[in-house]
């Protein structure tokens, strides 16, 4: 009798959970990201009717930042460990693939996953050390990491030192020259968003979010917080490293002051903060908005210093008035439009 009751309760709970899932799924529109992806995949067809290289470049640039911001979000958004030093992995990916491209002539697009893996392994090792501290300590240690890498990269002659390395230019006609990189970034962005969705909906993601709420409670409820945090660090380093690999070949040269400038890591943080940390759509929206802002400032005002000023101002205003970001704030008030609800 008791046996039967338990089964009934379990079945009832199952039905209840399913009804919740259906209710949540109704509020979500997972078709929207696929639609965007499909549109982006056919976008280069514009090249057949005219010269849209600028559009292609901007989309590619945005996609590059979508990969990086989504990667950052896996650590900074889910786990709550804010790293200001993620451009270190951007540089590691860029240099690893770039060196192989320069020496062995293997395209960085093929090497990107391997470069990501190298970044992830180095990230795992760094994470083992730096993730022992929390909060401001972690943020400061990540800043110190950038400085250390900057000095090392600038003085390491084998990888070109401060002057960097020039990479060969591909021999496609101008009209199509950007396309390999374009598709590489779009595919990487799609993979990054998909993986971050899968992580968020897994036991691993649940553990990460538990860590961001209260690490001690998470630990005492049986989560191996140390392993979880370090794995999150490695996964986020993987995506940032992959983006760096292809970015180096796209620019045709690699140099420490392209990869290891503070503005790049700030952009990653800002995109997530502006869009909404810990959400799937947040980094994507943030990337689109920030790149649009950047283009606007550079195109209308010209100076990169004003760009720094504006980036800082946007970040301050967002942090003061919408600390949850666009997606987070809208969701809190129940006004999130359905097509932005990817969680």
């Amino acid at each position: 009798m008791a046996e039967l009751a338990t089964d009934e309760i379990l079945a009832a709970r199952e039905r209840y959970n399913q009804s919740i899932t259906i209710a949540i799924n109704k509020k979500r529109s997972l078709w929207f990201p696929y639609l965007v992806l499909a549109l982006l995949l056919v976008l280069p067809a514009l090249q057949l009717i005219g010269n849209f290289n600028y559009v292609i470049h901007l989309t590619l640039f945005t996609a590059c930042y979508v990969v990086m911001a989504t990667g950052w979000n896996i650590l900074g958004g889910f786990t709550g460990y804010i790293s200001l030093g993620h451009n270190v992995f951007f540089a590691i990916g860029g240099y690893f693939a770039g060196m192989i491209f320069a020496r062995l002539d293997i395209s960085t697009i093929i090497m990107a996953p391997l470069a990501g893996l190298v970044a992830a392994i180095i990230g795992y090792c760094i994470g083992l050390v730096t993730l022992r501290v929390r909060g401001p300590s972690f943020i400061i240690s990540s800043l110190a990491l950038v400085m250390i890498f900057r000095i090392v990269f600038e003085n390491w002659e084998f990888i070109g030192g401060a002057a960097g390395l020039a990479l060969p230019v591909n021999d496609l006609p101008v009209q199509w020259a950007k396309l390999p990189y374009y598709y590489a970034f779009i595919v990487m962005a799609a993979i990054a968003v998909w993986v971050s969705y899968k992580i968020k909906h897994s036991k691993f993601g649940l553990g990460l979010r538990a860590i961001s709420k209260d690490e001690i409670k998470a630990e005492s409820s049986g989560i191996n917080t140390r392993l979880y945090k370090v794995l999150a660090f490695a996964v986020s380093a993987f995506f940032v490293g992959m983006a760096g690999a292809v970015w180096g070949e796209y620019l045709t040269y690699i140099r420490p002051n392209i990869f290891l400038i503070i503005l790049i890591s700030v952009n990653m943080v800002l995109m997530c903060v502006l869009g909404g940390k810990g959400t799937i759509a947040g980094p994507v929206i943030g990337a689109i908005l920030i790149i649009a802002f950047n283009e606007l400032f550079v195109a209308t005002l010209g100076a990169s210093e004003i760009n720094v000023l504006a980036t800082g101002l946007i970040m301050m205003l967002t942090l003061i008035f919408f600390p949850l970001g666009i997606v987070g704030t809208l969701a809190k008030h129940g006004k999130l439009p359905q097509f932005l609800n990817w969680d």
Partner: peptide, 11 residues
């Protein structure tokens, strides 16, 4: 916030 402030001052 202070990080953003640093960027504002630098800019």
């Amino acid at each position: 916030l202070t990080f953003a402030l640093a960027m504002v001052v630098e800019g």
